[in-house]
Design a protein around this nucleic acid. Sequence first.
RNA 1: GCCGAAGUAGCUCAGUGGUAGAGCAACUGAUUCGUAAUCAGUAGGCCCGCGGUUCGAAUCCGCGCUUCGGCACCA
Length: 641
Amino acid sequence: MVAITLPDGSIKKFDSAVTGAEIAAAIGPGLARDALAIRLDGELKDLGAVVERDARVEVVTRKDADALELLRHDAAHVMAEAVKELYPETQVTIGPAIEDGFYYDFARQTPFTPEDLERIEARMREVVERDEPIAREVWDRGEAIAFFKQQGEHYKAEIIADLPPGEEITLYRQGEFIDLCRGPHLPSTGRLGKAFKLTKLAGAYWRGDSNNEMLQRIYGTAWASEAQLADHLHRIEEAKRRDHRRLGREMALFHFQDEAVGMVFWHPKGWTLYGLLVDYVRRRLAAAGYVEVNTPLLVDRSLWEASGHWEKFREHMFTVEADERTLALKPMNCPGHVQIFRQGLKSYRDLPLRMAEFGACHRYEPSGALHGLMRVRGFTQDDAHIFCTDDQITSESVAFCDLALGIYRDFGFTDIVIKLADRPAVRAGDDAVWDRAEAALKSAVEATGLEYELNPGDGAFYGPKLDFVLRDAIGREWQCGTLQVDFVLPERLDASYVGEDGARHRPVMLHRAILGSIERFIGILIEQYAGKFPLWLAPVQAVVATITNDADAYAAEVAAALGAAGLRTELDTGSDKIGYKVRLHSTRKVPLLLAVGKREAAERTVSIRRLGGKAQEVLALDEAVARLTEDATSPIGRRPG
RNA sequence: GCCGAAGUAGCUCAGUGGUAGAGCAACUGAUUCGUAAUCAGUAGGCCCGCGGUUCGAAUCCGCGCUUCGGCACCA
């Protein structure tokens, strides 16, 4: 007797062991038809899995969130089957389900072409049409290895040979195609349905190691319904429309060109934005007790040798020869800050010393890593180093988390994941110090009340760190802030302070950034806001547009009044119709459009239209200036001057 | 850096061996209009670069550069 507890709490009894399919059938014919798999005591299993003892069972259908992973995993297998049919000389390797879809890595001499992709997708649809049953088989390890070797599938044989001893070797067979797989799978290929699409071709290293040969990866997306697929494709289009590289060009914010690969040419409107961000952060830092400094871009090699960068970071540094010496463009600001710290004797009374710099850094990034503003070779960090005692690590960490989260909130980021990376295998400093530093970071994160993830062993060699990952308006994640504890650099560069006891001590350095790089953060903001910046950040805040040229003189007066009140204002006295001007400035994403015609000129009013809205608000000029300057106030109050 | 694809007007793209094109943007003129496109005209090109094949190359071939999609990298 086997008693199966269903999700609604009811219990079905069977005389002997039953399969998932039989359980579904016992509940109802509709469910039997829709069943894809079961969840047995919380664990996903094939529909054909046998339940031999009392258990909780849920029947999984397309409507369940679990179904997506199954569908995607099956899509990968169906793709592999299609590829083997079309190109039998191809070897299969691995093909997992991933976010939004799946991929499969293949080994093949001649690369796949975009036309091959179409053929493969068409063949996949035939495999689905055939509705081949998918059967699970348990194999002996040696036999499985011999089988795949004999099939010419050397990668599969290698994977099996590397599986931990004692692990059950399961193969899944569908039609002529048989693949090593942990499962679970759908009962047949027909259940995959039609809601899938192959999306891109890419290279990928075998086992993710760049020392290995490169395989060919085919990516696809798969969903439970065609409506979901259409939604997904629509989201991709939406993301393209938000792409900061496209918006940056359209909005005349910046450009790149071949003579300065990976470095930004900031245009007037982009530089306005840049300045606004720096100004905002500068005032936040001042309020949080930081001092600001500036250190040289070009520094002699000897300092980088002393700091350890020459040894660990050399290949990412640009160098310059001059005066028979080798200078390096700074890739980081920390060694420079230690030089300032070392000027003059420091007392424990000087600590914590929070030293900030909008530090222009250059790094020779691999060419394939460059990506618009997000990954550049010349950028400016909102960097700071906090020199403090061991005892101050906790309070400084808590204060930093508070500051960072406040800043993120001002830009509309509230969905933030914090990652705590602790000691790596190879590290500097003794364990007692690591214990304290890790505990300090942990208590700082806990004080924020936010959830955090542990990245075990992912800390820097010189200390543990917290990373702040923001999730933007369309769900993408960006790592921005960081807080790193460093016990090593003060030692290497001989920073010290005099303690209460009159003896010399090593300070601890906390490396920290909030936006990360200004360039990158602007890229993120462009995409977060889809170019429609909040009023305080918009490069052009208002356009005064005339309805007829009779209002030109008054319009100039309105624009001047707004400009005098500190609003970034443009005047449009062109001879186009007001409808055209509304459209033009709307597509340019100007937040405020002030239309003035004969009526406004006569009454000394303005008609305000806000971006995205249709409503117009007619206000007296003085009132409008007061209202709009109020609306344009930055989150930390009016800009001085 | 590695695999693949692409590079034609400011932008989006057509042109696949025989006189470089369209739409939008720009410029000029007319129009003076009440909230997402007024009309007409003009101008705009080392077709990424360098070699090669050919009577002839934007088009075919080779090399290089850059960009895009991934992989690796992101101390």
